[in-house]
């Protein structure tokens, strides 16, 4: 077991180092000089621009060779320092990310968990049931093939612009400020439903289709037929089929995390939701090296940790893995 864990963790560490290095490199090799962009935005007078250029170059650590910037980056990283945002100078990147993170998590976590739970349940129900299969299956195909952003736009258009049932954008009403109050919670929920739905529905479709197909496969497996021939109730047979079908779905969850995070980013942009997605867009548009780096680093770490957790959880969920690791047959 420990060998298995060690192997897994080693792979994740290597992946992390490579991903972080790429993350560091990409913005630096993008065309455009962020400091000149900042000076242009400032409309700094030419007399002042030389002074300001050297001030900001030093402030952001661009005055040292690239290899040193790379080492400095790692050194700072281990101290939890992701640098200062360029466009929002001198706000630290971590502060910007921490400010946006709760909004993204509030969308992502329920969307991932609920869609996984509901999609699998509904998919399992749909298998071998004609009426459900004829309705849930085509609907799921449509949903899973829909880009989250497009679904978001449709939802916003129908339920916000046309029917005016939900707000078009933002995470809470303009008359409020974030605080622990019933009023704020209600407003937050009201603003949350559409972006959540855009993420939930697309993922839901995927899980439902996957589970429906897996259940059919499992129900046709020898063990199911054997159980049925022993006179076991259908419910019991389906229960075993469900458990077995769930395993590939969990692997799928690990694989899908990256896509869901990417989906959340675009959905946030559609709804002007003040999470990491909107922050990412602004950072990219403004060539904010450190902010882009910081957000990606955060996402990379998040997805890697989630994958690791799923890998470990797998050991406990699937007895075969455990037995295999202990040297059993």
């Amino acid at each position: 077991m420990w060998r298995y864990l060690f192997r897994k963790v080693s792979i994740y560490v290597v992946t992390f180092v490579v991903a972080v290095s790429i993350d560091w490199a990409i913005p630096r090799f993008m065309p455009g000089d962020p400091i000149q962009g900042l000076l242009s935005r400032m409309q700094a007078q030419p007399q002042a621009s030389e002074e300001l250029t050297s001030f900001y170059t030093e402030a952001f650590g661009f005055d040292v060779p690239l290899w040193k910037q790379y080492l400095n980056f790692w050194a700072a990283l281990f101290q939890g320092d992701l640098g200062l945002s360029i466009t929002n100078y001198p706000i630290p990147v971590t502060e910007l990310i921490m400010g946006a993170l709760p909004y993204t998590l509030a969308l992502l976590v329920p969307a991932i968990l609920l869609s996984f739970w509901a999609g699998n349940k509904v998919g399992a129900l749909a298998a071998r049931r004609k009426t459900l299969d004829n309705t849930v299956l085509p609907m799921s195909y449509v949903l899973t093939a829909t880009p989250q952003m497009w679904l978001g736009i449709i939802l916003a258009w129908v339920f916000a612009s046309s029917l005016a049932l939900f707000p078009v954008s933002g995470a809470y009403g303009f008359a409020l400020q974030p605080e622990w109050s019933v009023e704020f919670a209600r407003s937050f929920l009201h603003h949350w439903i559409l972006p959540f739905s855009a993420l939930f529905l697309v993922a839901f479709g995927g899980w439902a289709i996957g589970m429906r197909n897996l259940i059919i496969y499992e129900l046709e497996a020898d063990y199911s037929n054997y159980l049925a021939s022993l006179g076991a109730p259908t419910r019991l047979v389906r229960k075993y089929a469900y458990r077995n079908a769930l395993l590939p779905q969990i692997t799928g969850l690990a694989l899908a995390l990256g896509a869901v995070v990417a989906g959340a980013i675009v959905v946030e942009i559609v709804f002007s939701y003040p999470g990491l997605g909107t922050l990412t867009l602004n950072a990219i548009e403004n060539r904010d090296y450190f902010l882009i780096q910081g957000i990606f680093l955060f996402l990379i770490t998040g997805v890697l940790i989630a994958n690791l957790v799923i890998d470990i959880a797998y050991v406990f969920i699937d007895p075969r893995t455990r037995v295999g690791m202990q040297g059993g047959a």
Binding site: N88, I91, E95, L96, G99, A100, Y103, G170, A171, Y172, F174, Q177, P178, P274
Partner: peptide
């Protein structure tokens, strides 16, 4: 409102 994620 003086925060990086404030809407207003």
């Amino acid at each position: 409102g003086a925060s990086s994620t404030a809407q207003t």
